[in-house]
């Protein structure tokens, strides 16, 4: 029966497990649980793949009608879509269940997290992992790979580093969006749809050609929730194309800063939310 014990305990018998063991124990058992219902797991994977695929199809249909949109062709947009959807899917895989906060709050699940010796937010994040989203990430990755091969990109070290930094920062931005939305749920009853406007609207915005946006959209999704700089602006930089008004291509190197901003906002919101929940400040 020993093998059914969590792998977290597979260490020296007398040694207490490390700090990370708790998270590893939960996550590895979540992964096993998801994979043990095989039929469900494959349906979930297929569904997730289809979501990514159809979102790509929606972009393609527009380009099927016109050759270029806002200065980009379909080949170009594959690059934008690829970076954006890959980052979004990975963020969803790791942080996606944070959008179950309304349920956690209603069912009192959060109280249980308080009884355990780990930070509450870390427990919420590591309470689940959405493996099915790997399939969707695959659509993003595929689109990115095709986009990279079909476009003329000058492959310098700087551009390679930029691509890597962009993907990581974009993932961080989308992750922070989910944590931010989770924090907002402490204040709003039935408010998930409001935050979805920005979390999922943000994903939709990140895959778009931001040059066609109106000024308010540029403020909202260019800077407040910095979507344009997670994929569109870096893609312009890689393609050697000029940026539209308000979004110069040198901003491409600023994605990590935008990621920091978004995480700052997310953690601040979460903290205020926790305060509100405990009744300290509100």
């Amino acid at each position: 029966m020993a093998e059914s014990l969590a792998p977290a305990l597979d260490q020296g018998a007398g040694m207490p497990p490390t700090r990370l063991a708790a998270y590893r124990a939960v996550l590895s058992s979540r992964i096993r649980a998801q994979r043990s219902y095989r039929a469900n797991f494959y349906t979930d994977l297929a569904g997730s793949f289809l979501i990514g695929f159809i979102e790509l199809a929606e972009v393609w249909i527009l380009f099927h009608n016109v050759h270029a949109l806002g200065g980009l062709t379909f080949r170009n947009i594959l690059l934008v879509f690829g970076i954006a959807d890959l980052a979004f899917s990975v963020a969803q895989m790791v942080f996606g269940h944070v959008d179950r906060m309304p349920t956690f709050l209603r069912a009192g699940t959060l109280d249980v997290f308080y009884l355990r010796p780990q930070p509450v937010l870390l427990q919420v994040i590591t309470s689940e992992i959405g493996l099915r989203r790997l399939a969707r990430a695959l659509v993003g990755l595929g689109s990115l790979a095709v986009g990279l091969s079909l476009n003329q990109i000058h492959w310098s070290w700087a551009n390679a580093v930029l691509l890597l930094v962009t993907i990581l920062s974009a993932t961080a931005v989308h992750s922070a969006m989910l944590v931010w939305a989770g924090g907002v749920q402490f204040f709003l009853v039935n408010g998930a749809e409001m935050t979805n406007a920005f979390v999922y609207g943000g994903r939709y915005a990140a895959t778009q050609v931001a040059s066609v946006w109106s000024a308010p959209l540029k403020v909202l999704f260019g800077f407040v929730f910095p979507m344009a700089v997670t994929a569109y602006v870096p893609a312009l930089h890689l393609l050697g194309l000029p940026g539209p008004a308000w979004l110069p291509t040198w901003l491409a190197w600023w994605t990590p800063v935008f990621a920091l901003w978004m995480w700052g906002l997310a953690l601040f919101t979460w903290r205020q939310g926790i305060r509100h929940y405990q009744g300290g400040g509100g």
């Binding site: 409001m194 939709y204 915005a205 778009q208 946006w213 109106s214 308010p216």
Partner: peptide
Amino acid sequence: ANATFGFL
């Protein structure tokens, strides 16, 4: 949400 998506 409707308005945000609408403008996009």
